[in-house]
Amino acid sequence: MLNLTALRAFHEVARRGGVAGAAARLNVTDGAIRYQIRQLEQELGEPLIIRSKRSLALTSAGSSLYSRLSHVFQEMERACQSLSSDYGMDGDLRIACAPAFAGSRLPSVIKLFCEQYPLMTVRIFSIDMADDSMDIIISYGERPVPGTREAILGDEIYFPVCRPELRYEWDINTPADFARCIALHADTGADWMRLLSMASPQPVQFAQQIYFPNAAVSLQAARRGCGIAVGTSILCADDLRSGALVRLLDMVVPAPNPYFVIQPGAPHKESAERFVEILMAQVERT
């Protein structure tokens, strides 16, 4: 077995481009680093470093060893990290998610989850694949899948949104001003019909209308300045905080359905329980 201390010393020298940097990182003297590398070269029977007063360079053998050691030490760090993680969980987490939620709120939840559980692999699937093979289902409205379910923000509301500059370009102050606007519809346009019928006593006409397959695409088009869309308190929370989108007028209606977080089967995976906890905490602060 090669001396692990010597291998670590060589790796740090190559990584930091010099003996001094490696010595500082490992909290030893420069002489100790040089000694370890000489010992390693003797054991391997190969020169690893081209010695020069001006710069440090690796031999071909040194470059090859450094590349391999980088992978090895990374795996060692991951192994130790798993022990220090809250639960040391690993494996796959399978999530089927509604497209609008997947395109807006889900990425930040995944980021937080992966930071806490670095050995986990998260796999996202279309909501059309929601069945009992999934660990978590995030659905707009109910799904005929047995399991426990929890509603996310049952008091979610709908309202019109657009890029900030469009509000001023089209001078939108009343529902009648929508006559100058391009409407971005999700699916058949039922969301706009519901919003306008409940919020405006007068019929409202748009200058032009564009129909998209779902809210994920219509909201993305709104972020690009294509027109005005129907936003929701869940899906547009980050956009409103960042200023990417703004609410128009004082038009709001309750959402016809809540988002449900469904965990099929029993018992539930511990990783699924932790993911749902993070998800609910993030969304409930909307």
Rank of each mutant, 00 (worst) to 15 (best):
T5F: 07
A6W: 07
R8K: 15
F10V: 02
R15H: 12
D30E: 14
P47S: 06
S52R: 15
K53P: 05
R54E: 10
L58C: 09
S70E: 13
H71N: 05
Q81H: 08
D86T: 14
G88T: 00
M89S: 09
D92K: 08
C114Y: 01
Y117R: 04
P118T: 08
L119E: 15
T121K: 12
R123H: 15
S126T: 13
I127N: 05
Y140Q: 04
R149M: 03
D155S: 14
F159C: 08
P164A: 03
Y168C: 07
N173S: 15
A179I: 08
I182H: 14
A183V: 05
A186P: 04
T188S: 15
A190F: 12
R194M: 13
M198I: 02
Q202G: 00
Q202F: 11
P213T: 09
P213R: 07
Q220R: 10
A222S: 14
G227A: 00
I228K: 02
V230G: 03
G231A: 03
S233I: 02
S233F: 03
I234Q: 01
A237H: 04
G243T: 13
A244D: 12
A244K: 10
L245Y: 13
V246N: 00
L248D: 08
F260G: 00
V261F: 02
P264V: 01
R274Y: 07
M280T: 03
Q282A: 12
T286D: 07
T286A: 12
